Computed example of a mutant assay.
Amino acid sequence: MRRTLAARLMLCSILLLGLGAIAFSARSATPTAHEETDLPAKPAIVLVHGAFADSTSWTAVAARLQSRGYRVVAAANPLRGVKADAANLDSLVASIGGPVVLVGHSYGGMVISNAGNAGHRIKALVYVSAFAPEMGESAIGLSASSPGSTLGDALLPPVALPDGSHDLYIRHDLFHAQFAADVPAVEADGMAIAQRPVTDSALAEPSGPPAWASVPSWSIYGSKDRNIPPAAMAFMARRARSRHIVEVEGASHALMISHPDEVANLIVEAAEYH
């Protein structure tokens, strides 16, 4: 009787040890919730439009980024002044958890260059047909640094504002050729109607210390840009030590609309940079 009882106890012990080993193996093979959250998250992509455009100019690029699993925010850029617009962008960045990639088009490049980097939230900067200023430089000054811009001749008479500054618009009949020559005419006409004005004071305001001095940057622009001379953008991209500089042959200033694949690909490259 004692031998039978001992044998039974030994058999139970063996079974319990075996079940424990199986359970441990199962736990080891399945990552815990904590382990899953330790995986590096993709940065959010914040798209900043420039003068004479609005957030919808990023629609095609945003769709491509979202299809690759990125959270995308198309910021509404006030276009009132470099320092003020950058402060608005800083507030938006502060509301987003985790790292971000800032993408600026045209005057939007002035804004992302003046964004703060508190807590090292900003992982990368991407300049899309954009200004990448050094401290003290303005959009107007940089546009005149190389020949090729015809923007001045394409503007409507300035609209006076109560604070003494003026809103600037591109003439509707010249918008297609000036801003978006490689975009279908019907689409360009809609863009002309919906264009957001920029103040003359914003274009003349000097930049502060550039974010690209401490944050890696990427640059892409078109060879047929009539707003910002391509030679000026090439110079700014090299000066900002951009990791990858892309010139799209024949592309206009509205690069994110006419060549969304190239723009989205460069943004992803910046987002995946380690």
Score class of each variant (00 low, 15 high):
residue 193 I to Q: 05
residue 202 A to V: 06
residue 118 A to F: 01
residue 268 V to F: 04
residue 270 A to I: 08
residue 179 F to L: 13
residue 198 V to S: 14
residue 221 Y to I: 12
residue 223 S to M: 09
residue 104 G to N: 01
residue 62 A to F: 04
residue 228 I to K: 00
residue 120 H to L: 09
residue 123 K to M: 11
residue 176 H to S: 05
residue 131 F to Y: 14
residue 109 G to W: 03
residue 4 T to W: 04
residue 262 E to N: 12
residue 71 R to M: 08
residue 40 P to M: 09
residue 91 S to E: 14
residue 67 S to E: 12
residue 55 S to H: 07
residue 183 V to P: 01
residue 274 H to W: 00
residue 238 R to C: 12
residue 184 P to A: 06
residue 51 A to V: 04
residue 79 L to P: 03
residue 20 G to T: 08
residue 47 L to S: 04
residue 179 F to C: 10
residue 121 R to A: 15
residue 214 S to Y: 04
residue 240 A to D: 11
residue 146 S to Q: 15
residue 214 S to T: 15
residue 200 D to Y: 02
residue 17 L to C: 15
residue 144 A to T: 01
residue 59 T to F: 06
residue 113 S to G: 07
residue 148 G to P: 11
residue 153 D to N: 13
residue 143 S to M: 15
residue 100 V to M: 12
residue 194 A to T: 05
residue 260 P to Q: 06
residue 104 G to H: 00
residue 36 E to P: 00
residue 246 V to E: 11
residue 117 N to G: 07
residue 226 R to H: 12
residue 197 P to F: 07
residue 28 S to E: 11
residue 162 P to R: 00
residue 266 L to T: 08
residue 133 P to A: 13
residue 108 G to K: 10
residue 169 Y to P: 03
residue 222 G to C: 04
residue 55 S to M: 09
residue 267 I to T: 10
residue 125 L to Q: 07
residue 181 A to N: 10
